[in-house]
Design a protein around this nucleic acid. Structure first.
Lengths: 243, 243
DNA sequence: TGTCTATAAATGTATATACATCTATAGACA
DNA sequence: TGTCTATAGATGTATATACATTTATAGACA
C-alpha cells in the first residue's frame, strides 16, 4: 500500500501531500514524531532522497521540525512563520542591496520597573528589565522602530550584544533555544514620539508586530512599529522581462 | 578559481552565497540571465545537483526565476513575495485545519464606470469592469474582506470563476502569465461598512493590502482588508515539545 | 518567404550510493 | 551506583547517473 495519491504530480509533491494529509486529518497530531525517512522510503516505495526532499521542503514551509539524529516532528500551526516574515522585512531589504543603519535612541536598565511593565511580563515579583529603542534606516530613511523589554535575569549580557546588526528575535532563538513565542499583529495610529522618530505625521497608521518570548517566565517583549504607507511600497512593482 | 567562500558552510550554501553576492554587488543585474547549471558546475567545481539545489532554494526564496528549457534569471527585489505571504494568511489558515467559508456580498458588472474608477485603472476610455466584494470566514468568524475590480475586456469569463476557493491573484497569475504586479500595504481605520461586514467597530484599524495587476493596460485592482486585532493572534503561540 | 520539424540546450525529477554529523542509549567499567 | 564509551539510528550533505520536459532555433522543405 503506497498511500500516495495518483494524480499527475512529481513524487516528492505526492509525499508532501501524504504528510500534510496525515497532519490535516489529525492522524499525526502536533509534536508527533513522524516515521523515519527509512520507514517512509519502505512504506511509500520511493527513494530516500525523494522522501528527504519532501520533508526538507515541508520543514522550510514551517509544517515540520527536524532534529538531526533524533527525528522529524509535526510543528504547531504556522501562523508565526508568516508573521516572522513581516518582521524580517528590514533584513530582507538589507539583503537586496539597500543600505541599512540602526540608531539606538534609548538603552537603559530599569532596576525597579513599575506595575504596568511587570504586568506586560506577567510577573509576580520585581526584577530588572533592559529597555531599548532602536530606529532602523533604509538608505537614510527611517522605516522601522523597535522597542525591546528584556528580562535581564534570564538573558545574560543582553546589553553587550550588537543591536545594530542582529535582531532580538534571532538572538533569543540562539541563546535560549527552548523558548515559546507569541505574536500579535495590529495597526495603530502613530504617537507624537513615533511620528518624530519615523518622520511621519502624528496619527499616521503604523503596522505593529508584538513578540513575547518565554522560557517558563517571560523573558522578552518586542514591539516593532513599521510605517507602511506609500513610502514602503516603493520598489514592490514586479515587471517580467521582455522576450 | 572557485569563487566560493571558504567558511565552514555546506557547499550548497556557499553556492547560494556566491549567487547572492553577484546579485548584491550589481554584477548580475535585475533580469540578467545566470550561467547555466552546467557552466556553474564547471566553474565552481561542484556537482550539478548541488548547484541545482542552491538555485532551487533561491528561487523559492524569491531571488531567482527559472524557466525550464530557457534558463535562470535574477528576480526583482523580493518585497512582493513577503507581501504575498500576508495576503495568503487565509489559505494558510485553511491549510492547517480551520474551516474556511467565503460569502459573496456584491457581484456585478459595471458597464459604465465613473471617472474615479477609471482613474484607478489608469484608463483613457470607458470599458466594463467586474466588481465583487467577498467576506472570508474562519470557523464562522469574518477575518478578511476582499474587494475586486477586474477589467472584463482583458480577462474573459471572470464572473464564471469560483470566488470561494481560488484567490484572484492565483487566478490572474495562471490565466495571464506575463503580468506586472504592484503591491501597496497600509493600515486604515474601518469604515461603517467594513465594520459591519467584519463584525468590528467603526474606525478599528485594518491592515490593507492593495494589488494592481497589468498586462500593458491595468486589468485588476484588489483591496484586501484584514482586521489584525487580538482576534487574529489566536493560535500563533509556539510551544516547543517537552523532552 | 513561410511553415514545419528535428535538435540542442536548459531545467526538472528520481534513484543509488557514500559518507558526515548529531543524539540517545545500552553496556562496560570503576 | 555513577560515569564513560561505543554503537545504533536518525537526519544532513554530496556526487554520479539517467531520463523527462520545456523552449528556442537552425535548417529542411514547400
Amino acid at each position: 500500500m503506497s498511500g500516495l495519491s495518483n494524480t499527475a504530480l512529481p513524487l516528492y509533491e505526492k509525499v508532501k501531500d501524504f504528510v500534510l494529509d496525515n497532519i490535516g486529518n489529525g492522524n499525526w497530531p502536533q509534536n508527533q514524531k513522524l516515521p523515519s525517512e527509512h520507514e517512509l522510503t519502505s512504506s511509500l516505495g520511493v527513494s530516500r532522497m525523494t522522501v528527504h526532499r519532501a520533508l526538507r521542503e515541508l520543514t522550510a514551509e514551517g509544517y515540520l521540525r527536524r532534529v538531526q539524529g533524533v527525528g522529524t516532528f509535526v510543528s504547531p500551526p504556522k501562523a508565526q512563520s508568516t508573521l516572522i516574515e513581516i518582521s524580517n522585512i528590514i533584513s530582507e531589504i538589507k539583503a537586496r542591496g539597500s543600505r541599512h543603519r540602526a540608531e539606538v535612541i534609548v538603552l537603559e536598565r530599569i532596576e525597579r520597573p513599575d506595575q504596568t511593565l511587570l504586568d506586560a511580563f506577567e510577573f509576580k515579583r520585581h526584577c530588572p528589565i533592559d529597555h531599548s529603542l532602536v530606529v532602523h534606516y533604509e538608505n537614510g530613511v527611517p522605516v522601522q522602530l523597535e522597542e525591546r523589554y528584556v528580562n535581564t535575569e534570564l538573558v545574560k549580557n543582553y546589553l553587550d550584544q550588537d543591536f545594530t546588526s542582529i535582531g532580538t528575535y534571532d538572538y533569543l532563538q540562539h541563546s535560549t533555544p527552548l523558548t515559546e513565542v507569541e505574536h500579535l499583529i495590529s495597526a495603530v495610529p502613530a504617537t507624537e514620539r513615533h511620528a518624530r522618530l519615523l518622520h511621519i505625521r502624528e496619527r499616521d497608521s503604523c503596522l505593529v508586530l508584538n513578540r513575547k518570548t518565554w522560557t517558563g517566565q517571560t523573558i522578552a517583549t518586542v514591539n516593532t512599529f513599521t510605517y507602511v504607507g506609500s513610502r514602503y511600497s516603493l520598489g514592490s512593482r514586479y515587471l517580467p522581462p521582455k522576450k
